[in-house]
Design a protein around this nucleic acid. Structure first.
Lengths: 111, 111
DNA sequence: ACCGAGGTACGAAATTTTTCGTACCTCAGT
DNA sequence: ACTGAGGTACGAAAAATTTCGTACCTCGGT
């Protein structure tokens, strides 16, 4: 049973402003740092990030990341998969993921 | 008469979070885009960016950029010089300025 | 058919950020 | 010594963002 891929911007439509705004938040950056660090790029459950925030807030943050074009969210109805849009990001903003990858993953303290 | 260089973080202390937060704002990103585009790296007056905002607000934005470690502000008493910390940024966050440089300079609309 | 885990929608509170008004400072030029 | 341009300090309004409470939906397992 395939999930529906929730819609984000096309690769060419990725906006640097939206990306920086998305990465400005510690929790979202933590997610992205972890994704960037895992080079296998497997789809992950969104509980695998253990964010110290409520699930409603997590919904919000993942939405922001998706709308910035940084991740895909795959909707399975009662759970959700997260996948880094590595190729798209690398194409449009080469080097960006390397900056995140250079950070200690899972180590960003909430502000 | 030499100006005083207002203090920002050391190169090694540059924080990716602070940098992304600084670059999340359209006006600040416009400044950075223009600085990144001009590879001569001459010191610039802070009126050379024509930002469509009051001077108090400009003071605020330049302070944020300086505190993020992205620019130096040189205080001449009754005017101020701005200089991109290109080498420091390039050392700590290689590729970041290239991302900004790829943007159309002076073309970022206020949100 | 029900339950529970995982997730979302909506709305509101709390917090942060952006913006500017008023007042004041500094220096160059007259 | 006065003036004007450029800049800052402080404080408050306005806007945006982060957070969560309540209520509801979806699916898998029993």
């Amino acid at each position: 049973m395939a999930g529906k891929n929730l819609v984000g911007p096309e690769t060419d439509a990725l906006d640097l402003g939206a990306v920086f705004r998305a990465l400005a938040d510690e929790h979202r950056r933590s997610v992205m740092t972890q994704l960037a660090a895992d080079h296998s790029d497997n789809e992950r459950g969104c509980n695998s990030f253990d964010l110290p925030i409520s699930k409603q807030t997590q919904t919000h943050h993942f939405r922001v990341l998706r709308e910035a074009g940084l991740i895909d969210e795959i909707d399975y109805g009662n759970r959700k998969g997260i996948r880094l849009r590595r190729a798209d990001i690398e194409k449009r903003f080469p080097g960006l993921l390397a900056l995140l990858g250079a950070e200690p993953a899972g180590d960003t303290a909430p502000r």
